[in-house]
Design a protein around this nucleic acid. Structure first.
Lengths: 338, 338
DNA sequence: CTGATTTGCGGAAACGTTTCCGAAACTGTA
DNA sequence: TACAGTTTCGGAAACGTTTCCGCAAATCAG
C-alpha cells in the first residue's frame, strides 16, 4: 500500500521518466508548458515509485508550511475537543495540518511552545483553552496571524471568536416561556465568571421581554456541579416560592435540579420545566428526564476560527475584537408539554 | 518579546557577528573548534536578532523532523485526551511536537492523513482511538516506526500498548472482598466487546481466588449507560438474591447502580459496596456516594507509547505484540467501611 | 629564524523542491 | 533553404541549515 522504500525523490522520478527534475515538478503540479505525453510519462513514473513530495523542502522554498499551531492554555478538555474537530474540518479542506501544544496554564511552557511553533514556521496560530474570562494576549507583531477561539484575548487588537452566552440564555428562557411557564428561576455558577454574568444578563433580558420577573428576584449562585443543582432545587422547594421553570446555567447544574425536584416529588417536565447549557451528551442523556439544553456550537466556533485564520494567512484583513457565534437550543423531554 | 522582523537567518547573524554562516552554526550548536571569544560574539549576535533556526531547513538536511503524527481513528474523546497528555509529556522531553490527525473512523480520511504524515516526514506515528476491540494494522514496511496505543493492531508484528482490563477487574473485586463483601454481582456492557470479556475474566479470577462464586452465576450484560446500571440494580433487588457488592464495568454503570440501589432503599456503601471503572471525574464525583473506581492509567499509557516510539526512532528494537499497563484502584466512599 | 604542528575559521556542497531563463527542436512561411 | 516564431524542456539558482574539507594564521620546538 505505502511503499517501504524510503525517500523517493523528484530526481528518482526524473531518472525513471527520462526527464529532468524541473520537468517532474511541472508535470506533477500542472504548471509550465509540457507535452501531454511527457506529463503522462512523469505521472506514470511517479505512481510507480510511489512518489510523495517532501513537504519540508517545499515549505522551505515557498515559505509556507501548511501547518497551524494550536496552543491550548488549559489541558485539552470537553470544551476544546469539538473546537478542534471543527477547526480540523476547516483546515483539512485547505490541506493544512494541526500542531498541538498543550501548555496547561504554565506560562513558561507556553513561551516554549510558541518558540517551537515559530521555529517550525507555522502559517498561523489558534489559541484556545478553558473558556473562563480573559487571557493575556500573546502580543502583537507576530510574523504569523493569531486567532483566539473560546478564550478572549485581553488585547482588542486581537481577534477572538467566542460563543454567545447571553444569546444562549435568551434561547433557554424564551423556550421556557414559550412552553407556557411564567415563574422561572435561574440557578447558576460563581458570579465572578464572565459566563455566569452573560447568562444572567440573557436571562433577565428574555424575562423582561415577556414582562415577567425572576423567581426570588435573583439567581441562586454556587458551583458548576450536580450537587449544587440538587441543593439549589431543594432550597427553592423549601422556600415555598412558586415556580414552574428552571434555567440551570450548565447541564450539570440542570441535571442536579431534575434529581432534586424528583426526590422532592415534583414532576419534570409536567410541573417544572428545566433547561441546561452545554449539550454534554453524557449528562444530558443520563438525566431523568433527558435535558433540553443550549448547545454552544463549539465545533462551529472552531470552524469559524480556522476559517478566519486561513483568510488572514491569505493576506485578508480579518479585523479584530470579538466575534460571537450564536447558540442553538436542543429540545428534549425536560421541557416537554403534553 | 518575540521579534516581529521575520525570518532572521543564520546569514544575518553571521553578518552581524562578522563571521561566516558555518561558524554561526557551529557556535550555536556547540560543535567544531571555535575560540571562546568567537562563540560569545555569535551568541550575542543571535540573541540580539532573536534568531530562531528554521526547523524545516534543519529537518531537510538531517532527515529528522522531530515530529510525530498522532492518528486517531475515532474522534478525540474522553479516552484519548489523557493519552495525548501523557504522550506529550514524554515527547516534550525529547523536544518533539505532535501532529494531530482525526480520521473519525473513515478509512479514506485515514489513508489521506497517513499520506500527509509521511509527506511531512514525521519521525514516527502513534495510532490511537476508541479502545474497542482490534483495528486493522496500517501495514508493515513503513519508512517510520508505528506504535498503537489504546487500540490493538490485528497484526502481531505491530506493537500495541493497552490497558489491562483483566487486572483492573481483579483490583476492583479484590477490593470488594477485602472490605468484607462476599456476595458480589457483576454488571457490565455488551459481551461482544473485548473489554467486557477481559473484565469478566478478571472478575471470575479474583472471585475464585477467594473461593466465592458470582451472584447469579453470570454477569448482567447490557449497555455502557447509567440507565442500564439502574435497571440492572433493580433487577438484582427484585430477584431476591442476596448481595453485598457490585462491580460495575464502567463508571456510568456503577453510578446507575448507586442510584438504583438508593431508590430501592438500599444503602451504599453500608449494605452494598459499588466499584466502577474509568475514574471519569464528572461521573465519579457526582455519584452518590462518590465512586470507588479503577483508573485505566491512560496518561501513563500514552507516556509509555511515546517512550517506546522514541526508542524505535533512535533505532532501538522495541519488539512487538502487546504490552499491558496495569490499572490503579481509586478508593472513595462507595466502598467505605465504618 | 625556520619548519612542523596545531588551532580556528571560511567555503562549498548537500538536503529536495520549485521557478525562472534560455536553449534546442519543431513548425510554418517565403 | 533560410528565417522567424512557438513549443517544450533542461539547467541553475534559490530556500536555510549543517558538515566536511582545507587553508591560513598562530603556536611551538629547535
Amino acid at each position: 500500500m505505502f511503499p517501504s522504500r524510503k525517500n523517493v525523490t523528484v530526481a528518482d522520478v526524473a531518472a525513471l521518466a527520462g526527464v529532468s527534475a524541473g520537468t517532474v515538478s511541472k508535470a506533477l503540479n500542472g504548471r509550465g508548458e509540457l507535452r501531454q505525453a511527457t506529463r503522462d510519462k512523469v505521472l506514470a513514473a511517479a505512481a510507480e515509485l510511489g512518489f510523495q513530495p517532501n513537504l519540508l523542502a517545499r515549505g522551505l522554498l515557498s515559505g509556507r508550511t501548511y501547518l497551524v499551531g494550536v496552543l491550548t492554555t488549559d489541558s485539552i478538555g470537553r470544551f476544546t475537543i469539538p473546537l478542534l474537530t471543527g477547526a480540523e474540518d476547516a483546515l483539512g479542506a485547505g490541506q493544512m495540518s494541526m500542531l498541538l501544544c498543550e501548555s496547561r496554564g504554565d506560562p513558561i511552557r507556553e513561551q516554549h511552545y510558541l518558540r517551537v511553533l515559530l521555529a517550525r514556521r507555522v502559517d498561523g496560530i489558534i489559541v484556545t483553552g478553558r473558556s473562563s474570562d480573559m487571557r493575556p494576549s500573546l502580543g502583537q507583531g507576530f510574523p504569523v496571524p493569531v486567532v483566539y477561539a473560546l478564550v478572549q484575548s485581553d488585547d482588542e487588537r486581537d481577534l477572538s471568536i467566542l460563543h454567545d452566552d447571553e444569546n444562549g440564555a435568551e434561547l433557554a428562557v424564551r423556550h421556557l416561556l414559550a412552553t407556557g411557564r411564567r415563574r422561572i428561576a435561574h440557578i447558576t455558577g460563581p458570579l465572578r465568571h464572565v459566563a455566569t454574568q452573560h447568562r444572567l444578563a440573557g436571562t433577565l433580558s428574555a424575562l423582561s421581554e415577556a414582562g415577567v420577573s425572576m423567581v426570588g428576584g435573583a439567581p441562586l449562585t454556587g458551583e458548576w456541579s450536580e450537587a449544587w443543582g440538587r441543593e439549589a432545587a431543594l432550597r427553592l422547594v423549601r422556600s415555598g416560592e412558586q415556580f414552574d421553570g428552571v434555567f440551570g446555567a450548565s447541564d450539570q447544574i440542570a441535571r442536579g435540579v431534575t434529581d432534586g425536584l424528583r426526590e422532592s416529588g415534583i414532576d419534570v417536565p409536567r410541573q417544572v420545566g428545566v433547561v441546561g447549557v452545554d449539550n454534554w451528551d453524557v449528562i444530558v442523556e443520563a438525566s431523568r428526564p433527558p435535558l433540553t439544553t443550549v448547545d454552544l456550537q463549539l465545533s462551529e466556533l472552531g470552524h469559524i476560527a480556522a476559517t478566519r485564520l486561513l483568510s488572514a494567512i491569505e493576506g485578508v484583513d480579518i479585523g479584530s475584537g470579538i466575534e460571537r457565534v450564536p447558540c442553538r437550543l436542543v429540545v428534549r423531554q425536560s421541557t416537554a408539554t403534553d
